[in-house]
Every structure is written in structure tokens, then in C-alpha cells.
């Protein structure tokens, strides 16, 4: 890159400006302070003891109290309470932000820069970047408990626990037994225990509170039909069309990871017109969730913008001609008259 500039090294003024480019080498530490603001966040604060076994209190507190250790009773911000349920939120932080301006000073006689100033380029000058405090938006990601499904449920329920086994249970499987029954006949099976435990108790406290228990025989003795529909994506074999795949699977009714049988169908349509050309043959209940926005609503056109980084060739040529002209005329002047 710098090789391009070699023809111009005769001109200190050029070099000085070239090295004005701030390359981010100034390692000024950022001074972060949580900004006090009037906005608050609703969270679930664990009652004592801190394991939340006695439940939560619904609090509407300042966002600062999530971080600041001074304002809380036990000297800790809510973020330090392991079981508190704190949702994700945004807040402002004061940070030093470069203003785009510098203070300049000459080098000292020994060639070094004054304290706080840095040398740059090949100039005789030193400079120091100017900063000002500005509010920068940050995102608090949410506490560990809030990231769990149970945490969101409790927060949505004003920090109260739903009745045990009321909301959702999770299955726990025992080991399969050895084969039982009469060998050599169809009357042969394996069996295992399947228990369901309360999801909220398990996720928040690790307690496997059993809701019910049953014996289950071989996988796929009871099945459920599940259907998942993909998003519309461009057809790899035809760029003017897009396709959507529907998968219909029969899964074991107590262990969804066991797929007993499956089939898929594909629908196709024109991208521009949104016309369905194929037939969606999906059957059965749609139990999955399609997180896309739904059908393609139409099309749009993109504005033609000048987003290409510009070519600088002609600038270099003009600069070279001007500098050579100056050099030649100056040399002639010196030789003839000075």
C-alpha cells in the first residue's frame, strides 16, 4: 500500500497528512459507569433463603440496581443473585468516545513527546486524542434463570409458581428391560419406566418432582404425528422458483427423538408471482411452529446506490503531474537564478 506513495516522499506536507489517519492505536482505557436513569425493570427477586425455595418477590427496580452493589440490602446487585429472574433489557453506559479532534504539541528537544502525547507519522509533532463522555446503548442479556423456559414462565406469572405439574412436564426414561415373553413368537417385548416431572421445579431448582409414572413397552407402540414446514427457499435447480418442504413424521409418543416413520413432500411456486405451482400434500396435525413470517407477501425492488468504494487512479495521476511540475520548475528556478 505505502509503495504507491513513494513518488511523493519528497513532500513533507503530503507525508504529514497521510499519517494523520487514525488507525486506532491509541489504547485509551474506557471508563464505564452505569448511567442512572428513571427507567426500571421488572424482575423476580428470590426470597430468603437465596435458593428461592420460598418463592420470589415481584420487584420493579431501577436498572442500575441490577449492577450496582451499593443500593441493595446484601451489598450485591441483582445480577449477583444466582436464582433471581431478570429479563433482558437495554441501558446506557457512559463511555469515552473519540471526538475526532486532537491536541497538538511540538516534540521536546530530546525528540520525545510530552506526557500523554504520542508521536505519529514522521512529523515533528505529537498529538493527543480528545474524548468526551457519551451514552452508549448496551444490552443486558438476562439472568441465567430467565434464559430458561421456566424462568420466563414464572416472570410472566408475576413471579408466582404455577401449580405443580400444571404447566409443563418433562419425561424421564428408565432403562429398557431385557426381552420378555415367549421367544420365537410375536409375543415378545421390552419394558421401561417413564416418569414425568415438573419442568419448572426441575429447571429452577433441579428437583425432579414426579407427576406420574407408567410402564412403556417397545418404542413406537404409541405414536404421534408431527408435521414441520420449512421456510420458502430458492429452488437450487431453478432460480425463478422457490420450494417449501413439508415433513410428516410419526414419533414415539413419549420420546419424540424416536422417529418411527417419516415422509416429505415439496411444494413449488414462482418467486415473482407467489403462485403455488405444486400441491402441498401435508396431512395430520401441525404441531411444529413455523417461525418465519409466513407466505411471501410479494416482491420489492432495490434502489441503485453508489455503494462501491471509489477508484482513486485519476487522483494519483493529477497529483503526480502537479508535483513533478512543481519539482521541475523549482529546480530550474534554483539553477538559473539562485
Amino acid at each position: 500500500m505505502k509503495g504507491k506513495y513513494l513518488p511523493f516522499i519528497f513532500f513533507p506536507i503530503l507525508i504529514s497528512f497521510l499519517f494523520l489517519s487514525p488507525l486506532g492505536v491509541n489504547g485509551k482505557d474506557k471508563d464505564e459507569d452505569i448511567v442512572e436513569d428513571e427507567k426500571k425493570v421488572i424482575l423476580c427477586h428470590a426470597r430468603t433463603p437465596e435458593d428461592a425455595k420460598n418463592g420470589y418477590n415481584l420487584l420493579n427496580v431501577s436498572k442500575k440496581s441490577v449492577f450496582d452493589k451499593k443500593d441493595s440490602e446484601d451489598g450485591k446487585g441483582h445480577d449477583n443473585h444466582v436464582v433471581d429472574i431478570i429479563p433482558s433489557f437495554t441501558y446506557f453506559v457512559k463511555e469515552d468516545v473519540f471526538t475526532g479532534e486532537y491536541d497538538y504539541k511540538d516534540k521536546k528537544k530530546d525528540g520525545s513527546c510530552p506526557n500523554g502525547y504520542e508521536e505519529y507519522g514522521k512529523l515533528e509533532n505529537c498529538r493527543k486524542a480528545k474524548y468526551e463522555k457519551l451514552d452508549v446503548e448496551k444490552t443486558y442479556p438476562g439472568s441465567a434463570k430467565w434464559l430458561l423456559e421456566a424462568g420466563k414462565i414464572v416472570l410472566d406469572n408475576d413471579c408466582k409458581f404455577p401449580e405443580l405439574c400444571e404447566y409443563k412436564t418433562a419425561a424421564k426414561y428408565g432403562e429398557w428391560s431385557d426381552w420378555k415373553g415367549e421367544l420365537g413368537t410375536l409375543n415378545i417385548y421390552k419394558v421401561r419406566t417413564v416418569s414425568a416431572f415438573d419442568l419448572i421445579q426441575y429447571q429452577l431448582f433441579g428437583d425432579e418432582y414426579a407427576c406420574n409414572t407408567e410402564d412403556r413397552y417397545d418404542a413406537c407402540d404409541m405414536t404421534e404425528t408431527k408435521t414441520s414446514v420449512s421456510a420458502w427457499v430458492e429452488d437450487p435447480s431453478n432460480t425463478e422458483k422457490e420450494i417449501q418442504t413439508t415433513i410428516v413424521a410419526k414419533v414415539d409418543s413419549t420420546d419424540e427423538k424416536v422417529i418411527c416413520e417419516s415422509s416429505f413432500t415439496t411444494a413449488s411456486r414462482d418467486i415473482e408471482q407467489g403462485e403455488v405451482l405444486g400441491e402441498n400434500t401435508q396431512q395430520g396435525e401441525v404441531l411444529g411452529e413455523n417461525t418465519q413470517q409466513g407466505d411471501v407477501l410479494g416482491t420489492t425492488s432495490v434502489v441503485l446506490a453508489k455503494t462501491g468504494a471509489s477508484s482513486d487512479l485519476y487522483i494519483f495521476i493529477v497529483q503526480a503531474v502537479l508535483m513533478l511540475g512543481t519539482l521541475v520548475s523549482g529546480t530550474l528556478l534554483v539553477k538559473k537564478y539562485i
Binding site: 500500500m1 503530503l14 497528512f17 487522483i315
Partner: peptide, 9 residues
């Protein structure tokens, strides 16, 4: 012209 144009950053 020249400096603002060629300045990479």
C-alpha cells in the same frame, strides 16, 4: 482532494 481520497481510514 488527494489526502481525503487516499486516506484509507
Amino acid at each position: 482532494v488527494f489526502i481525503p481520497t487516499v486516506n484509507p481510514y
